[in-house]
């Protein structure tokens, strides 16, 4: 047949619903929590230092209340972060990569391979010690459509990157 023009049944198209998502490495969660705690502790220390310097402790009760409220919110945030992180996942399909995020506010981003501009690995100091890496996938759709996949094992990230680069080359020189 020279030309095929089959009718497309929308319901038969591959769906992004109910995919078997690959979980991210839970050790990345530890890194996230450490980063947040460091910030929290630094702010606490700065406030304490300031109070010492001024030698004025009349504000201490107010500050204590303020700090404890903030601390409670902080704990809440950390719990949400944990729950949210455990729900994250990605899937590599034949033609695209799917990334799911969120607990109460959820989102699914899909980037087709033939629209990826380039991809790279990045590693923070903590990630390095855990042998984790972050995979950044860039499209021409601007920052909001760039896919950032944190918490991948170094080798895993490298092999996905290799795979994606192969896909990009295939599409560019097909």
């Amino acid at each position: 047949m020279l030309f095929e023009n089959q009718q497309i049944e929308i319901h038969e198209l591959p769906s992004t619903e109910d995919l078997d998502f690959q979980k991210l490495d839970a050790r990345y969660l530890t890194i996230k929590i450490i980063n947040h705690l460091v910030f929290f502790v630094v702010v606490m220390l700065a406030v304490g230092f300031f109070l010492l310097l001024e030698n004025d402790f009349s504000w201490t009760p107010t500050l204590m209340i303020f700090m404890s409220v903030w601390g409670l919110i902080y704990v809440g945030t950390l719990l949400y972060m944990r729950k949210e992180f455990l729900l994250r996942g990605y899937v590599l399909r034949k033609h695209d990569i799917v990334y799911r995020k969120g607990w109460l506010w959820t989102s699914i981003v899909v980037v087709p391979f033939n629209r990826i501009q380039h991809c790279e690995l990045s590693q923070g100091p903590l990630e390095k010690s855990y042998k984790l890496a972050k995979l950044n996938i860039f499209t021409a759709g601007g920052q909001s459509s760039d896919l950032k996949l944190p918490g991948l094992k170094k080798e895993e990230a490298a092999s996905i990157k290799e795979f994606l680069l192969n896909q990009i080359n295939e599409h560019n020189y097909a």
Binding site: L104, W105, T106, S107, I108, V109, V110, P112, R115, G141
Partner: peptide
């Protein structure tokens, strides 16, 4: 289209 995002509150 470069990428698609489906989200729900």
């Amino acid at each position: 289209v470069q990428a698609v995002r489906l989200s729900q509150s």
